[in-house]
Design a protein around this nucleic acid. Structure first.
Length: 878
RNA sequence: GGGAGCUUAGCUCAGCUGGUUCAGAGCAUCUGCCUUACAAGCAGAGGGUCACUGGUUCGAACCCAGUAGUUCCCA
């Protein structure tokens, strides 16, 4: 059967993925082997695969496949999170298309729609992961809102409440007026934008023409002002001590207060204070006991307390009030400035600081072990530089606002009577019972459950425990076997959102870390360094990439540009390189596969040496690869593998043993060489497998007869053994000789078909001629002979002080040759000089380590010998 | 405003404890080849003031200080 010379990944990938599934190779059940566990960072159910997922899931799959081949019980747990805001937004939008408003639905009905949506679309991203080749144990797929996981969330809430770690309070929160919910600090993205700074003058109370000018970027909040604040040291305002001023339009009299918080340089040095709508103002308000007037409603529109513009959006009001103040003569000037504005990560609405009643988790004590165990190296962050960021955050950690004003999520198990008395309990029945204990004289029959749900991260922080049913069954087989997990692979953007909180939960609920290592990938950016985003449209569709280059190609492409912890600038050309690599491997297979192998053919010297060399090379390189893996240097491990395959195996080894063509027919390969080559190739497939699972599995089955259970995916990772360093050293010289000869051929424009003669001048007695056959073959030589004298009229080169001559039919251009030699001489003299400089330096000789000194001395003698040879060559040129 | 990181070839990055012929890799580029595995290929070559300035040292891409640019985190 003719094997196509271009590898076609599509049918291969579909076939083998199905095959692996069929034979349950991804499945993990606790046994006596050492476990190797990864829990997937659950992508959110609304998501479709983007390049960030591609990257971290490729890395996870590489790790898990290698662990599996190393004989560990590899378990990669997949799943999704319910992403309350994002999902609810999607469902609301979908309902809106049908003309249904959320407010018209009951909570129950809305959730029914949401679940329908989840069933229909929630699995898309997991299906996409299959295309990538992700070897997750799909039987273990979990979802943060499924029964058991939700129950864990509720139990944890109740437990922490009972421990006094959870409280309810009025706080300034980041309000998302579009999502109509509070969001955490981490979900606010601060962006620099072009704004205006409005200078507005307020009348001083009781003075005929006394004014104070404040500067603000948010004039719409003027209606909620309850003070004006200046710096106590500010000479401009010292006379205002004890005075009051009048807020325009609403004509409210408010005090002028003094606080060192004020920045003298900014604006006019006078700050209008709106405690209800700015976190700093809020704190000032508490300190100075100011009134709080909330003038903006949940939807971002002015409310009745504002008195003006009621029902109009804050941004429209900003323009209107500026104009009105202008007309009133109270607008002094307007300047353009740049400032940072917070946006909701989910809805992109401008965040409105808002006072509201929320649930909080105290972070001060509960986070202690999580900080400690990262600092002491019990949990490793890779790369280490993230420890700084982590430490900084954990040392300044704020209480976590865990309530969200949404329906999609776990409803907070808090119950209220009509006076606002609260009990926390798992069910209404239990709540009522608890309530009766607290209020024995009450005969209330009905409590009202809190309307809000818990933050999605309040589910996912339990993920490494809850996916193994560690809450439901704390001493279960799974949790005891798989926990703590080995590696977590995710992006640094969720270091606090998720990683830190998982560590906290791990210590709180298992008394142990959730994972040993956290591998933080970079953020995938486009070629210009911009984050990939839908708005910019600069993100390639991963599935299309896979169609175009094959999953193996894209995986390789991803990792080629993925230095650990640094952002990566993705470009499609990397996937192309990956695809080309697939093709290279494929063609190596085609070559070997096409060889006749005869039992009666004697193994020749070339093949014997080639085999010895590649065996040594493979082992040495595998040591390097293993070491790089152990340091999580994935892209370097890939590059080392790439070079092993492309350069060492294909370009050198296969070229060496490739049978020659005689009379238009390929000679046959001896059986021993053939079998060894197959064995080498199989080892190479193993080492390639984690990076390129599909093509390697395909060739694995083509290259030898195997039954359907004998799959590469469960083969053993090769052990390293042979450490023949001598042959590797020798080969460095051999390849240098070969390159020199090829170079001369190239420079002199000699056809590769023309056979050359090469002479080696014997200076000393040492002749290592075992490699000559290789030089003969790879350079297409007629002969390779030893001489005692220089060969006249030939091109020459030096390798390790040995002189080589290549006579060619053209005359030697002595001028060019002399120039070349002079240049070489100059370089070597310069080099010698630098060595001598060290050796004649007393301080160097007395300070340097002995081996270093010896090295320098050797350099000296080598350089001297070389100079002598070059000078001799030069003298004969004249 | 506070903190952390980064700056090495056209691009993306290695370079560990300062010392090997140390300035490297891949891609891209250039030149020659459709040589019976692969043109998605083969062979060869050319690319760098290691951001800048100063310091420490016998010796600095590497250590220290400052400057510039840049990215991120926090407020």
């Amino acid at each position: 059967m003719e094997i196509p010379k271009i590898y076609d990944p599509k049918p291969v990938e579909d076939k083998w993925y199905a095959h692996w599934i069929k034979h349950k190779f991804f499945k993990s059940i606790p046994d006596e082997r050492e476990p190797y566990t990864i829990v997937i960072p659950p992508p959110n159910v609304t998501g479709v695969l983007h390049m960030g997922h591609m990257l971290n899931n490729t890395i996870q799959d590489v790790l898990i496949r290698r662990a599996r081949m190393q004989g560990k019980n590899a378990c990669w747990v997949p799943g999704t999170d319910h992403a309350s805001i994002a999902t609810e937004a999607k469902v609301v939008a979908l309902l809106a298309e049908k003309g249904i408003k959320k407010t018209d639905l009951s909570r129950e009905d809305f959730l029914k729609h949401a679940w329908e949506w989840k069933v229909k679309y929630g699995g898309i991203i997991l299906k996409q992961l299959e295309k990538l080749g992700a070897s997750c144990d799909w039987d273990r797929t979990r979802f943060t809102m499924e029964g058991d996981l939700s129950e864990a969330v509720i139990d944890v809430f109740i437990d922490l409440y009972n421990k006094g770690q959870i409280y309810r309070g009025v706080r300034m929160v980041n309000w998302d007026p579009k999502g109509l919910t509070a969001v955490s600090d981490e979900e606010v993205i601060h962006k620099e934008v072009n704004s205006k700074l409005y200078y507005v003058r307020y009348k001083i109370e009781g003075e005929a023409d006394g004014w104070i000018t404040v500067a603000t970027t948010r004039p719409e909040t003027i209606l909620g002002d309850t003070a004006v604040c200046v710096h106590p040291e500010d000479e401009r305002y010292k006379h205002l001590k004890g005075k009051r001023c009048i807020i325009p339009m609403v004509n409210r009299s408010v005090p002028v207060i003094f606080d060192t918080y004020i920045d003298l340089e900014f604006g006019t040095g006078a700050l209008k204070v709106t405690p209800a709508h700015d976190i700093n103002d809020y704190n000032l308000g508490i300190k100075h006991k100011l009134d709080v007037i909330d003038t903006i409603a949940s939807d971002g529109k002015m409310n009745a307390a504002a008195q003006f513009y009621i029902g109009e959006d804050r941004f429209i009001v900003r323009k209107k009030i500026a104009q009105d103040l202008e007309e009133m003569g109270q607008m002094v000037k307007i300047e353009d400035i740049k400032n940072k504005v917070g946006y909701s990560e989910r809805t992109n609405a401008v965040i409105e600081p808002k006072l509201s009643m929320q649930w909080f988790l105290k972070m001060d004590t509960i986070s202690k072990p999580a900080l400690e165990n990262v600092l002491n190296g019990e949990i490793k962050l890779i790369p280490e530089k993230f420890i700084n960021t982590y430490k900084h955050w954990m040392e300044n950690v704020q209480d976590w606002c865990i309530s969200r004003q949404l329906w999609w999520g776990q409803q907070i198990p808090a119950w209220y009577d009509d006076k606002g008395n609260t009990v926390v309990a798992k069910t209404h029945v239990k709540a009522l019972a608890a309530y009766k204990v607290q209020h024995p004289r009450s005969n209330i029959q009905q409590l009202k459950q809190d309307e809000d749900v818990l933050d999605t991260w309040f589910s996912s922080w339990l993920w490494p425990i809850s996916v193994f049913d560690g809450f439901k069954n704390p001493d279960g087989k799974d949790i005891n076997y798989y926990y703590p997990t080995n590696d977590l692979v995710t992006g640094p953007d969720i270091l606090f959102f998720w990683i830190a909180r998982m560590i906290i939960a791990g210590y709180e609920y298992r008394g142990e870390k959730p994972f040993n290592n956290v591998y933080l990938t970079g953020i995938v950016r486009d070629k210009k360094g911009r984050k990939m985003s839908k708005q910019l449209g600069n993100s390639p569709d991963p599935i299309e990439l896979i169609e175009k280059y094959g999953a193996d190609g894209v995986r390789v492409g991803m990792l080629l540009c993925a230095p650990a912890g640094n952002d990566l600038l993705f470009d499609e050309s990397y996937s192309e390189q990956g695809r080309n690599f697939s093709n290279k491997i494929w063609n190596a297979f085609r070559l070997i596969n096409g060889w006749e192998h005869a039992v009666d053919t004697q193994q020749n010297e070339i093949n014997k040496i080639a085999i010895q060399w590649f065996d040594a090379k493979f082992n040495a390189q595998l040591d390097i690869i293993n070491d790089l893996y152990s340091k999580y240097r994935m892209s370097e491990a890939l590059m080392a593998t790439y070079k092993l395959v492309w350069d060492d195996f294909c370009a050198w080894y296969l070229e060496m043993i490739k049978p020659e063509f005689v009379d238009g027919k390929s000679l046959s390969v001896d059986k021993e060489t053939y079998d060894t080559t197959i064995a080498f190739f199989e080892k190479i497939l193993k080492v390639l497998h984690p990076f390129m699972p599909f093509i390697t599995e395909e060739i694995w089955h083509l290259i030898s007869e195997r039954n359907e259970k004998e799959c590469l995916i469960v083969e053993e990772w090769p052990a390293t053994s042979n450490k023949n360093r001598i042959i590797l050293k020798d080969f460095e010289i051999v390849t240098e000789v070969i390159t020199n000869i090829r170079n001369i051929r190239k420079q002199k424009n000699i056809s590769p078909k023309e056979k050359l003669e090469v002479f080696k001048k014997v200076n000393q007695s040492e002749i290592i001629n075992i490699y000559d056959v290789i030089i003969l073959k790879l350079c297409n030589l007629k002969s390779f002979k030893y001489v005692n004298e220089k060969v006249d009229g030939a091109n020459s080169f030096l390798v390790n002080n040995a002189e080589f001559y290549v006579p060619i039919s053209q005359n030697i251009d002595t001028i060019v040759e002399r120039d070349r030699l002079l240049k070489e001489l100059q370089y070597n003299k310069g080099f010698l000089e630098s060595v001598l400089k060290k050796l004649t330096n007393e301080k160097f000789v007395s300070n340097a380590k002995p081996e270093l000194l010896g090295n320098e001395r050797k350099k000296q003698t080598d350089a001297l010998a070389k100079i002598k040879v070059i000078e001799e060559q030069l003298s004969t040129l004249k």
